[in-house]
Design a protein around this nucleic acid. Structure first.
Length: 285
DNA sequence: ACTTACTCCTGCACGC
DNA sequence: TGCGTGCAGGAGTAAG
């Protein structure tokens, strides 16, 4: 499940292997992979050809490849199971290969978008003055963005009538956090996922943001989390952070702080993992 | 205006 | 063994 650290690992791989190269041709093998490109697959392919790729950028879980001198960018979201792979042209097609992009140079690699569950996809969009694809203007800056505004986030939390994990997953408040890193940051902060945000104090928000950044940076340092082997970097390699998870996926295992068995609750069509002792439920639930 | 629920999709781990 | 069921869940959109 690619979240911010995993997407950043992919972005770095693209920066190394794809930036500066010119698109020769592209091939869309599954229309759903370009569903956010409203003009359709043929238009997507046609408009890519001949453009040179600039430095890959990222906000939260979105990443994009600017197309030099065009005012446009290829926007990518990996969804649940999307992979961007740099492969030799003669490597066998992956079972779930959705899009192939070939380059006009002598480097013997092509870019492939592979996606089992097809929640992800690529699309082409105009970029705004700050280089952001226009369709992701509603996505908040992420906690590793130097321009992320901690105070504005704190005030937004207090304004909202919501609970803390909902807020962490709300990409218009803070981006890049998904189910895994939300549970990890909450465990480190000793916060229950259902705690209302209304009464959050500034120190509490500051601590939570600190833990969010810490856990993301730690994951980034070891190549991200590959919980179910669906996430890999552009070379097809897994990250190692799954071994360092303190909360996610640890139902029944001892809390690493207090040894109480970790609990799992069905929550918003997914799961929340937490320590029932360290992360007390709010009084009114 | 704001919050919540639904929906898309495939493969795998289950239990009977 | 084979089949049905549940689960993984990001984010746009519809509904409340």
């Amino acid at each position: 499940m690619p979240e911010l650290p995993e997407v950043e690992v992919v972005r770095r791989g693209l920066e190394r292997w794809v930036a500066g190269r010119t698109v020769a041709d592209a091939e869309v093998l599954h229309p759903r992979a370009v569903r956010r490109h409203l003009a359709g697959a043929d238009d997507f392919v046609h408009r890519l050809k001949g453009h040179r790729i600039g430095t890959p950028a990222r906000r939260g879980k979105y990443l994009w490849l600017p197309l030099a001198d065009s005012g446009q960018a290829i926007l990518a979201h990996l969804g649940m199971s999307g992979q961007l792979l740099v492969q030799p042209p003669d490597a066998a097609d992956e079972k779930h290969l959705r899009i192939r992009i070939r380059f006009a140079d002598d480097v013997r690699t092509e870019l492939r978008f592979v996606d089992q569950r097809t929640f992800g996809g690529l699309s082409l969009h105009d970029t705004t003055d700050d280089g952001l694809p226009d369709v992701i203007g509603h996505i908040a800056r992420d906690p590793l963005d130097p321009l992320f505004d901690d105070e504005a986030f704190h005030q937004a939390l207090r304004r909202k009538r919501t609970t803390i994990k909902r807020a962490l997953l709300d990409q218009s408040l803070i981006s890049g956090v998904g189910n895994i890193y939300a549970d990890e940051a909450l465990w480190r902060s000793r916060l229950h996922y259902d705690r209302p945000t209304t009464g959050f104090t500034r120190p509490r928000t500051t601590e939570l943001l600190g833990h969010t950044r810490d856990v993301m940076n730690a994951a980034l340092a070891v190549g991200g989390t590959s919980f179910d082997s669906l996430y890999v970097n552009v070379n097809g390699e897994s990250g190692y952070f799954d071994r360092s998870l303190d909360a996610y996926g640890r139902e029944g295992e001892p809390c690493k702080r207090c040894t109480t068995p970790m609990a799992r609750r069905a929550w918003m069509n997914r799961s929340s993992y937490f320590c029932p002792k360290c992360q007390r439920a709010p009084r009114i639930s």
